[in-house]
Design a protein around this nucleic acid. Structure first.
Length: 460
DNA sequence: GTAACCTCCCGCTAAGCCAG
DNA sequence: CTGGCTTAGCGGGAGGTTAC
């Protein structure tokens, strides 16, 4: 028999149950009067806990569900990047809270906040802090890149003056942020940028017309011209002050577990190989001039900054011939012509990062970060002498040092993990660099690894 | 690889039926 | 008339399938 399902209203059923329960009507009379099946009326009297509806019960009441939705929307508006996992976690906690029979109400100050995430949770939520130091020792104000949609005002508290803040989806720098960094620093970087194993000659302008000049579709800045000069890997590692990964990446693969020491030995092997070929020094900053293969001269007409690099011994490499698979780590000069080679360090580094990235994908498909921070070790550059090259005054954002050299001193008392916010961490490092008096010294042995890259920490 | 869609199962209520 | 049994219908969730 096909049943007609619930053609009456909930109010009619409630009134019928009330009439039957009070004894004013029999179930038959109430069924006829309110149009509700008599068995349904009797069922509700027999089981008062029954709900008036069909199907499985909802997990949340309408009001509770609306509140949860509003909460998530508010979090998004405040710049909190919500991933699927975080939404699930918040919802689960919310449901658990509602399930508690006794909900305690407390009175707290209006500025009391809930610490949702500490130390990045899984260690994959990073905040990038970029403090640029040129070879002369000039320091640019920090750029802090948060993994969020909008910069929260609380995130910039304690940061140094003139520092810049921005957001990306994953907290890593990208092309747009790089251009923003350069633009916000109000500096002309003509002929003065060293990136990823190459010295890149970039000229930027804030041109809104991108299509006419081949600019990137997503970039607001127009790179007018570029050229690259190959540099050794060691140069790149030394100049990347805050992210100097000295390949101390441990193998996670048990079968190929070699450990940190072996990785460092491999790097040393790479450096020794370069030394045998009479190439650039093993320790870049210990060399009198890191651009020993490049004649750096003042040129009043070469660019607006009056600074140019004459690179007669080095062939300018067209950027279009550079791709991710080609590195310019070794420059063999014995034949009179510099040639590019993919070095052992590149190969080993790629082999090390690959399993980490694979594990990352398996462990957490929701997150966007590719490298597990727990498998990376960062090495500070302690008491490293920055060699001098002539630089235009326009590049000197900080008070210029009269000396031709500056010592980059990273104090061991910079307890970055104990700092509360990335902005304060940036201020600590930045102020330390600014207050360091230049002095000549030989490179000191590398200090024990310290994670300079501060994990995102919410402590509001 | 991922999102959308479909199917099946399960929990719950609605409703018909019957015996007392 | 009432209580109890049985089954249909509703809706959520898990897992599989399919399309992009």
């Amino acid at each position: 028999m096909i049943r007609s399902h619930q053609k009456y209203s909930s109010e009619s059923l409630q009134q019928a149950i009330q009439a039957y329960s009070s004894g004013s009507m029999s179930s038959v009379d109430a069924a006829k009067f309110y149009g509700v099946p008599e068995s349904t009326i009797r069922n509700h009297k027999r089981r008062p806990a029954m709900n008036i509806r069909s199907g499985r019960p909802y997990l949340l009441k309408r009001n509770d569900e609306d509140y949860l939705v509003q909460l998530l929307l508010d979090l998004e508006r405040t710049g909190f990047r919500l991933t699927k996992k975080k939404v699930m976690k918040i919802s689960q906690d919310y449901v658990e809270t509602l399930k508690q029979k006794s909900r305690e109400l407390v009175l707290v100050p209006s500025d009391t906040k809930i610490k949702y995430e500490e130390n990045g949770g899984t260690g994959k939520s990073f905040t990038t802090i970029i403090i640029a130091v040129n070879a002369k020792g000039d320091v640019l104000p920090p750029l802090t890149v948060y993994a969020a949609k909008h910069v929260n005002n609380q995130w910039i508290e304690g940061g140094p003056a003139r520092s810049a803040y921005c957001c990306t989806d994953n907290g890593w720098i990208n092309d747009e942020v790089f251009a923003f960094c350069i633009h916000s620093s109000s500096m002309s970087i003509d002929n003065m940028s060293t990136l990823s194993n190459s010295m890149v000659n970039i000229s930027l302008s804030n041109n809104s017309d991108l299509s006419s000049n081949g600019g990137g579709s997503s970039s607001r800045y127009n790179i007018q011209s570029t050229s690259a000069v190959p540099l050794p890997t060691t140069t790149d590692q030394a100049i990347q002050l805050l992210n100097s990964v000295v390949a101390s990446i441990e193998y996670l693969d048990n079968e190929n577990n070699r450990g940190t020491q072996q990785q460092q030995r491999l790097i040393h092997y790479d450096v020794d190989l370069a030394a045998q070929n009479h190439l650039l020094p093993t320790s870049v900053f210990s060399h009198p001039n890191i651009y020993s293969h490049v004649n750096v001269n003042q040129s009043p007409s070469a660019s607006s900054s009056g600074f140019s690099i004459h690179q007669s011994p080095v062939h300018v490499v067209d950027q279009h011939f550079i791709n991710d698979n080609e590195k310019f780590d070794l420059l063999q000069s014995d034949r009179g012509v510099l040639q590019k080679h993919t070095t052992f360090s590149d190969l080993s580094l790629m082999q090390m990062v690959k399993p980490v990235m694979q594990n990352e994908t398996d462990d957490d498909k929701d997150e966007e970060f590719l490298v597990d921070s727990s498998s990376r070790m960062y090495t500070e550059l302690n008491n490293v002498v920055l060699s001098s090259i002539p630089a235009p005054y326009s590049l000197s954002i900080s008070p210029s040092h009269n000396s031709s050299t500056a010592t980059l001193s990273m104090d061991s008392n910079l307890c970055l993990p104990q700092l509360s916010t990335p902005a304060i961490a940036a201020a600590t490092v930045y102020n330390n660099l600014m207050n360091t008096e230049p002095r000549l010294s030989s490179p000191a042995p590398k200090a024990p690894s310290t994670r300079v890259r501060q994990q995102r920490k919410f402590d509001w």
